[in-house]
């Protein structure tokens, strides 16, 4: 099974008004599947079997349908992931700019391979072949979708250290959107659900 089991989700109750508002946007409630999955992932950090069931229940769809839809999209994590997910772009421009070295450095300091999570559950490392659209500033990585540009092996190590120690200032020094981004990253898990999903 692609989606692991987890505790019963709280978002259907806690975010009831938003759920209803999302459904009301569309002429067909099926259209709310992806937004509700985003909501579920924002609440738990990943999507559990129980979330799929909840989405199905709310929208009157089978769990199998929600599962097959969710598994199509790469951004939904089917297993617990670290508090911080580092995604390294390995597409062409970043590759030419040295993404390989950044990934290697991360693998080394974290002691894990792409797709894995550190044993303390803090950091998940991912390589993505989807270009992150900052090719003029490669190598590029995102941490919980915030941008980190012009990385080097050394900067990648500093990045990991900043995440480990929760050092906002050090992280802001590396982030494209400075302090705002650093705060958004470090407050992960109590992440705010975006107004539009």
């Amino acid at each position: 099974m692609r989606f692991a089991h987890g505790e019963a989700p709280t978002w259907p109750e806690a975010r009831k008004a938003e759920v209803e508002e999302i459904i009301a946007r569309y002429p067909d409630s099926r259209s709310a599947v992806l937004p509700l999955l985003h909501l579920a992932q924002a609440a738990r950090g990943w999507v559990a079997q129980e979330d799929l069931e909840a989405v199905g229940r709310i929208l009157g769809l089978s769990t199998a349908y929600v599962d097959s839809t969710a598994s199509f999209y790469a951004m939904y994590h089917g297993h617990p992931v670290g508090k911080y997910v580092i995604t390294v772009c390995t597409n062409l421009s970043c590759h030419l700019a040295g993404a390989g070295k950044v990934l290697e450095a991360l693998e080394k300091t974290l002691g894990i391979k792409p797709g894995e999570t550190t044993r303390d559950g803090l950091i998940t490392l991912e390589g993505t072949s989807e270009c992150l659209a900052a090719c003029d500033a490669g190598p590029v990585a995102q941490v919980n979708v915030e941008y980190f540009l012009r990385l080097t092996g050394a900067k990648a190590e500093t990045l990991v250290e900043a995440l480990r120690s929760g050092d906002t200032k050090a992280l802001a020094g590396l982030a494209e959107h400075g302090e705002a981004a650093a705060e958004a990253v470090l407050s992960a898990r109590v992440r705010e659900v975006p107004a539009h999903v």
Binding site: R25, L34, P35, A74, Y76, E130, P194, H196
Partner: peptide, 10 residues
């Protein structure tokens, strides 16, 4: 106008 987020599928 409504926004709609993708989910990582080129």
């Amino acid at each position: 106008v409504e926004l709609r987020l993708g989910a990582g599928a080129y």
